[in-house]
Write a protein that binds this DNA or RNA. Structure first.
Lengths: 228, 228
DNA sequence: CGCGGCTTTGATGTTCATCAAGTAAAGTGG
DNA sequence: CCACTTTACTTGATGAACATCAAAGCCGCG
């Protein structure tokens, strides 16, 4: 094996490539490209050709698209170990969605043709991809259905809990989204996101300092997320 | 090859199994089970163990789940050639969704372990599965985002156009869904589905005889679906 | 310093869910 | 087959949830 390859040490190797060895690993390793993006930068643009299989090594990204009237809809937020290279990579030749960095991020890019050629030789890798992809698709679909049943306050609460519990692991954190982006994610207006946040503050559930949020009363926030 | 096997002649063979021959095809062929369901019958129940890989040979089915308050949400409608065996089959051991027959339907069931063992030997089959699955996931996600941006009339129009153009290929057809089910699909109340339909009738866009719908003015219906 | 974008709050009107009540259709048991 | 019950469908009236509009403060940036 090529001794200069560092993929063997990558903490994400197990994600897709646990059954990869020798030539196949070398092929990935020598062909891969890591790219850095700073906060706000575009990583993938809707409508462009799909050339690479992309996944997130570090950072945080949003996945979104433009609706018929030109407004953006956020589909999901992904962190490392979430599958990033989008659902459509194996069925389309163009991206259906855009991706941009919410925090400084690093991606690892592998040529689609390399992935394809390896997967066709290595069914276990393909099965692994299948498994990862269905997890992601499932999460997006279930979240979207869950959000649809909630009232506005419940949607905002849902988002805050997601950041607190799944991303930052703390009751205090900096929101990586603007109010407008929060609105685009949960399908409501910016003004009403702000109103919900203000209500939570008035009710003593949150403390808010600009973008930094401190969840004071997690229990009631959770019950709002579930039943509101 | 086993001469009694009819899979070779199945019009759906190309869906997943175009690169399948010899022993592998025999394995599928001898292990598969076809099942018939009449309208309204349950095919898959949310929460049960996943044992088989299931796809639709004929008929029409709905894919749905129960939300936290026990109400049903319809996730998608599938016809043959659409991938039916759900997204979660490769990542979960229990179904996240239920499936039931909207019209008399026939499924072909193959043991998951057979699919898995063949896919791990045959990367091209796995890639093919990957491609099919991402198409389905994409469609569900894009439809759900599209519906979210529309007003009620637009959602109902969207549904009618789907049945007319993608399922029945005619401007006159019998709705396979009750008013209640239409509401569960597009996220509104039964009463408002009915109100939208009545408005379309008053405006001369539709003729309605119970479940049978005749779209008189397709163009305005389309513009309502797009901009409403 | 001024401009544009982000945030916040209030006032207003529209869209939609809920409630109520009635009709039609479809299954159920005697 | 008919009374009976249940389920689906329909319409109207009401109020709540929410979007839109308007205005002002704030902050970063050229």
């Amino acid at each position: 094996m090529d001794p200069s390859c560092t993929c063997e040490l990558c903490e994400l190797k197990g994600l897709f490539f646990e059954n990869l060895e020798g030539d196949q690993l070398d092929m990935i390793c020598s062909g891969k490209v890591e790219k850095e993006f700073s906060q706000g930068e575009s990583i993938i643009k809707e409508g462009t050709m799909i050339k690479d299989f992309v996944y997130l090594k570090s950072g945080l990204v949003k996945l979104f698209r433009s609706d018929s009237s030109g407004k953006e809809q956020i589909i999901s937020i992904s962190k490392p170990f979430d599958y990033v290279s989008l659902l459509s990579v194996f069925s389309n030749d163009q991206y259906n969605y855009s991706v941009s960095a919410l925090e400084d991020s690093v991606t690892c890019n592998i040529k689609m043709e390399d992935i394809r050629s390896i997967a066709s030789d290595n069914g276990n890798l393909a099965l692994n991809l299948l498994k990862r992809m269905s997890k992601v698709a499932d999460k997006i679909i279930l979240d979207s259905l869950a959000i649809r049943t909630k009232h506005l306050r419940g949607r905002v609460a849902f988002l805050l809990i997601y950041f607190s519990q799944d991303v930052y692991f703390s009751s205090e954190f900096d929101l990586p989204l603007s109010r407008k982006e929060m609105a685009e994610y949960v399908g409501m207006t910016t003004e009403n996101v702000i109103r919900s946040l203000s209500e939570f503050r008035r009710d003593g559930i949150l403390k808010i300092y600009g973008k930094t949020i401190h969840i004071v009363n997690m229990d009631t926030l959770k019950s709002i997320a579930e039943f509101g």
